[in-house]
Design a protein around this nucleic acid. Structure first.
Lengths: 352, 352
DNA sequence: ATGAAAGCGCTAACAT
DNA sequence: ATGTTAGCGCTTTCAT
């Protein structure tokens, strides 16, 4: 920077002002500074700038796992949203381990990120670290959250999503059902389980089983075998996420169980997988963009109000039910029905 | 830090030495420093430390897209590898756009990362920015690379991978084939195309068509329709990656074309999708861990030797062919055959 | 083994 | 509008 100043015949302060635009600089000086900077291929050192300015223009994002396609989709939404401002995103993956998560959180703190978006991998084990972190810098929870704190959170209304699924199944004539999901260690798994049970009760649907493992293909496959080997078959299998449902669908086909004729299957998340399996998957769509936008908005708000202990904000977006082939007759394979949270119903063709 | 020093009754220099272990500190002082640090919940400011030390202990990684499951898998491998040292990974996504990629590269430079791993999204358009960046800091290309530079690179031998696929198909009795892949704008797409053409020629296989679009499900679906509507069917369809193959498989099932009986299909990458579709997919496995490890090794080497212009290192790992149901009779749905690059053949059961 | 002091590259008061 | 100067929080000579 000193070199640039020298070359342009000005002080470093002027260079700084010219480059950051923090204050007016006369036209000719500005030009010569910009020229000198270009000639020297000068790039400002963000480390130094951040240190001095006491703000890094970077955000941390901690997700449980990047292998579950739902999270990449969420990450992309956050990135797109961030693209406007020129802030940097520091992405970390806790790999479903609260110890790793804690390490990541601290690393991000040390990096002096301006704010933090976290999807805690465990409702209890993550609590201490997340709460402690939130006490230090603006933090909002994304998608998942810890229990018994009052921190900001934005995600979807899992309970409503499950209700939509179960009611749809009931309308399709389903009277008995098995639920396949993850052990309720995180908030998503918990709420989906509760949402399922409540709705099944409401709809007077017979719950033939609740199989709890992990949000993975492998568990879907395992569960399919258990379900098929302990006949009679239920009318429907409600899966806690798309990954499980895809595994389930694969295995059912292998076992010669026809979906949806013999057995209806539903997923949750509407990852890209849901459209490409056969039959395509009825599932619950998470509006990533909306969630990301809202989360960043809350973060900005925290930043502004700072210490004035405003009460915790909680935003639960209502998801849409996407009806595809795994629950309805394959009248038209290239259409899907979208039941939005507000009750709107739309139909559209897909993938072409 | 000053607070810690005060509380421990020492100088900041001693605090620094105690905390970083950069120099011996007498036992009692060390204890009191550590105690004070804990009591004050002190975390060192990495920004300041990095500025002073002129090294950030962080690496940048730029991938083309995070929606293609191959890249999350690669990212995880890099993270695992990095976990040992306590370096931070800054992950960016170019979203298949060389302009965005250039921005990301510069952002990472400004962050003063110690080194850079890049998978350039375009063999030509990415060149300028990547070469310019490599001139400034240690950089190694991962998976994809730019053309006509001599920068370090580590990835798999796409040509060999395609050769394995085509020879396998020939052995299975395939005499005619269609290739479905991405426009050859990046190195992977290019080499796979060339590998395919060369091998098809070697095996005297008739090439009925070359359909070039994008590495996506949607393109697989589109291509399936084109292939089926312009009968006669080839014996096999070789896809440029798993995503295309999965879309293809889905659509072929819909169109009542039986795989592999009427038509064999292959993928490339061996993402988790390859095991869970029906029929499961014969594909080429990329050894992520090996690639990640080698890349970091090269980066470390560059760091050490620094300016002594050693010639560019190029490491092409030989991939394995994974034989599943989409090319062979479904004798045993739960087995897959692995043909390693060294010629070794193994069989193992899967997903349970 | 420890402390004093300089300085990493930048920005923001404070002066002019 | 521009320059001078102090200092962000740390590490590392250089003394002792």
């Amino acid at each position: 920077m000193r070199d640039v100043a020298e070359r342009a015949g000005v002080s470093t302060a002027t260079v700084s002002r010219a480059l950051t635009g923090s204050r007016r600089v006369s036209g000719d000086l500005l030009a010569s500074v910009l020229g000198a900077a270009r000639e020297l291929d000068y790039q400002t050192n963000r480390l130094a700038a951040s240190l001095r300015r006491r703000q890094t223009n970077s955000l941390g994002l901690v997700v449980p796992e990047i292998g579950n396609p739902f999270f990449p989709a969420l990450v992309e939404a956050v990135e797109r949203e961030l693209d406007r401002s020129d802030r940097q995103l520091l992405l970390c993956e806790s790999r479903l381990d609260s110890t790793t998560e804690c390490r990541q959180l601290n690393a991000l703190l040390q990096q002096q990120v301006d704010g933090l978006l976290v999807s805690p991998c465990d409702a209890l084990k993550s609590r201490e670290a997340v709460v402690a972190t939130a006490a230090k810098i603006p933090l909002v929870q994304l998608d998942r959250e810890v229990e018994g704190s009052n921190l900001d959170w934005v995600g979807i209304d899992d309970h409503a999503g499950m209700a939509a699924v179960v009611h749809h199944l009931a309308e399709c004539g389903g009277r008995s059902v098995v639920f396949v999901s993850e052990e309720p260690a995180n908030s998503s798994a918990r709420r989906r389980l509760k949402g399922f049970l409540d709705s099944a009760f409401e709809c007077e649907m017979q719950v033939l089983g609740v199989l709890l493992g992990t949000f993975s293909l492998a568990w879907g496959i395992e569960a399919a075998n258990r379900i098929v080997s302990s006949r009679p078959l239920p009318d429907a299998v409600v899966c806690g996420n798309d990954l499980i449902a895809i595994g389930m669908l694969r295995e059912l086909a292998l076992l010669d169980v026809h979906v949806p004729e013999q057995l209806m299957v539903t997923g949750f998340d509407d990852t890209f997988l849901a459209q490409c399996c056969l039959p395509s998957l009825t599932t619950v769509r998470q509006p990533h963009d909306e969630i990301a936008a809202k989360a960043l908005e809350l973060l900005a708000a925290k930043d502004a109000v700072s210490k004035s202990r405003r009460k915790a904000q909680r935003v639960a977006v209502i998801p849409s039910l996407i009806i595809r082939e795994s629950t309805t007759e394959r009248a038209n394979s290239f259409a899907e029905v979208i039941m939005a949270g507000d009750g709107t119903v739309a139909e559209r063709s897909v993938l072409r």
